[in-house]
Amino acid sequence: MSVQPTTWVEGPAHRPVARPKGLRLAWGRNAPAYLFLTPWLIGFFGLTLGPALASLYLSFTDYDLIQAPHWAGAANYVRIATADPKFVAAMKVTFLYVALSVPLKLIFALAIAMMFNRGIRGLPIYRAIFYLPSLLGASVAISVLWRQLFASDGLINLVLWQLFGIEGPSWISNPNYSIYTLVILSVWQFGSPMIIFLAGLRQVPTDIYEAANLDGAGPVRQFFRITLPLLTPVIFFNVVIQTIDAFKAFTPAFVISSGTGGPINSTLFYTLYLYQEAFSFLRMGYASALAWILVVMIATFTAISFLSARYWVHYDD
């Protein structure tokens, strides 16, 4: 005779209750749980997984939002890979933006976090003030403000002229400089990684620095031999998150270039190009293919980051 395993669940009066047998009874028992899960399930299947799968399908079609999509096989991907100079331009701009903005933002965030970690008075207030740009940074309003600051008659050029007598260029409309204004805007939003760096710095035990002090290590050696290695888990996290964010950056480029990615495609972020294809030219199938290439790019970067982590990230346990 086999003995059926019984799972005991605490009842309201702490009396063990046997789990009912049978699918129907189990469903009946779990129904309240599913009821509470329903909003999330609707959101996940209806707004995340469903559209994602639909876009994957659409990426293999020719679809203009008006007529029904018709199957095009790998044509969209082939065209992206072989006959789309704007794709190449967008990739260049995006990679340049990622390569510049992520390290600069993280260096800036770490520098400010280290300053805060020295225990200055009124730290919570400063922390909030310095975090503020991160809340506002990617918004349309701030992007508009940025456009005003870096315009040919903007505040930056005014300051340059008044203080140094330098006549600055039109930073935004000059293709040599426009991308850098967006990089600076990104660096300005250093609050989020700064808070994470600050939390990481607080985790480094003081007595390790004291031991290093007794070992004769000065501030520079302590930074490179103690602080940086012990911060690597936090650096790793920030690099991954900020890089993903940088790949997905859209609003600043859209606002500053008025949606064109100009001048001369110098601010044509990948997501902006994707947006143009989808909503300006109504090439939804092509845009879906672009979106999936972005997904693959981000996934590849993330995978490489995780694979490389074992060589440079030091975990305590």
């Binding site: 035990p205 007595d207 390790i208 004291e210 031991a211 290093a212 002090n213 007794l214 070992d215 004769g216 290590a217 031999r225 103690i226 290695p229 012990l230 690597t232 030091h314 305590d316």
Partner: peptide, 20 residues
């Protein structure tokens, strides 16, 4: 005189080893 120049070595309660 700075700690490192006093000719002393210290063993900490928490050991304070460099974990990395």
């Amino acid at each position: 005189v700075p700690a490192s120049k006093r000719g002393i070595a210290m063993v900490f309660q928490s050991y304070a080893l460099y974990p990395h």
